[in-house]
């Protein structure tokens, strides 16, 4: 179907590949992507340790410790993990802003301000 091929192209960066695609100076792409993946893996590791680790796998051990009335494992499962989730997304969004700027792929309005 012809219209699917068309819509596919629109899905890219407004049509044509960026300058230098397939050329020798494409190293930045790999670098950018590797840094993105590294950040992602670190954050997801924290995500797993806090929720599945502290809240489920080691909850009984942590429950031996009590803080402000909360058994610690119980606290992680019902409170702590949620606060950490917010932090993780916050760190991700801010770090990606910096990464986008560093590699010149952040979204800008015509006057150069963040869009």
């Amino acid at each position: 179907m012809a219209d699917t091929a068309d819509t596919g192209q629109d899905g890219g960066t407004g049509g044509a590949p960026p300058p230098g695609a397939g050329g020798p100076d494409n190293g930045w792409r790999k670098e950018y992507w590797t840094k993105n993946l590294r950040l992602m893996v670190v954050l997801l590791a924290v995500w797993f340790v806090v929720s599945f680790g502290c809240g489920i796998l080691f909850v009984e051990e942590l429950n031996q410790i009590e803080v402000a009335g909360f058994p610690l494992g119980f606290w992680f499962a019902q409170q702590g993990s949620i606060y950490v989730f917010i932090l993780l997304i916050g760190v991700y969004a801010l770090r990606m802003d910096r990464l986008d700027d560093e590699y010149g792929v952040s979204e800008r309005n015509d006057d150069g301000s963040r869009s």
Binding site: T13, P18, P19, W28, Y32, N36
Partner: peptide, 8 residues
Amino acid sequence: EIRYPARR
């Protein structure tokens, strides 16, 4: 292409 938010 979806890996990069905007054109470089």
